[in-house]
């Protein structure tokens, strides 16, 4: 379930196919999004954007009176908010063009509703931080703003590398982050040969965040592949099941 904070975000949906608009709207509504507006052409989208001041735009590439790339450029001139493409054009050059223009994501039709929702939520979480930025784990809370762990009332600071690793894990909470991706997050462009250092850092993070570092429950190892952060509550997502 999404937090109310995220659900209240204003979404603009642009596609020339009314049936598809209806469907995406119904998917979004079912997920709990409340503020959704749609448009079927570039002109309509620009007009709606002026009135509605969206906080996220989902754009099709092929529109009757222009293309989504041009529309994105115009929308970007008016406001700086995240945008993603949802289109039938799956060519690499289209994707590169979209990302080149500053798209936050590029999804090719046909798509799984779950995937679309996941990506929208991820973009919104990234772009609009909640007032309470605490990540709640089973044994502690992490304050990513201040780069510290709050465990039993005690504030334990994180080193730069530990912070980089935890941020990468948090962004993909619940999903495996590969060893290579973590090394890249911590050591940058040439992340080879740091596997042992990574293990050392993970050990130190566990000492800070786990109740029992030898039996980790929040930062678990996926043998050979990478690590996974299991958060009890993430900003933007309510786990009040």
């Amino acid at each position: 379930m999404l937090s109310d904070y995220i659900k209240r975000k204003r979404l603009l949906l642009v596609d020339d196919e009314p049936d598809l608009l209806d469907m995406v709207v119904s998917i979004l509504k079912e997920e709990g999004y409340e503020n959704i507006r749609t448009a079927q052409s570039v002109a309509e989208a620009l007009k709606t954007a002026d009135e509605f001041d969206p906080e996220l735009a989902i754009l099709d590439v092929m529109l009757p009176d222009g293309d989504g790339f041009g529309l994105m450029e115009k929308l970007k001139e008016k406001g700086d908010y995240p945008m993603l493409f949802l289109t039938a054009r799956g060519e690499d050059e289209d994707k590169f063009r979209g990302f080149g223009l500053g798209a936050d994501d590029y999804m090719v039709k046909p798509f799984l509703p779950k995937e679309l929702l996941f990506r929208i939520a991820a973009i919104l979480r990234r772009s609009y931080k909640e007032e309470d930025p605490l990540v709640k784990l089973s044994g502690c809370e992490i304050d990513l703003e201040r780069a510290e762990v709050i465990k039993g009332g005690e504030h334990i600071p994180l080193t730069a590398k530990e912070f980089a690793l935890l941020s990468a894990l948090y962004r993909n909470a619940g999903r495996i982050v590969t060893i290579d991706a973590l090394c890249e997050a911590a050591w940058g462009d040439n992340p080879y040969g740091y596997e042992n250092s990574l293990m050392a850092h993970i050990r130190r993070i566990r000492e800070k965040i786990e109740k029992n570092p030898s039996k980790p429950v929040s930062l678990v190892t996926v043998k050979g592949l990478g690590y996974k952060l299991i958060a009890e509550r993430q900003p933007g997502i309510d786990h009040k099941v």
């Binding site: 196919e17 049936d19 598809l20 469907m23 995406v24 119904s26 998917i27 079912e30 039938a88 054009r89 799956g90 090719v108 039709k109 046909p110 798509f111 799984l112 509703p113 779950k114």
Partner: peptide, 17 residues
């Protein structure tokens, strides 16, 4: 394949719902 994408999106979307 391009022309199939949009209708298939709808099939997938509604079926998933």
């Amino acid at each position: 394949s391009h022309d199939i994408r949009t209708p298939l999106s709808m099939v997938m979307g509604y079926a998933a719902q």
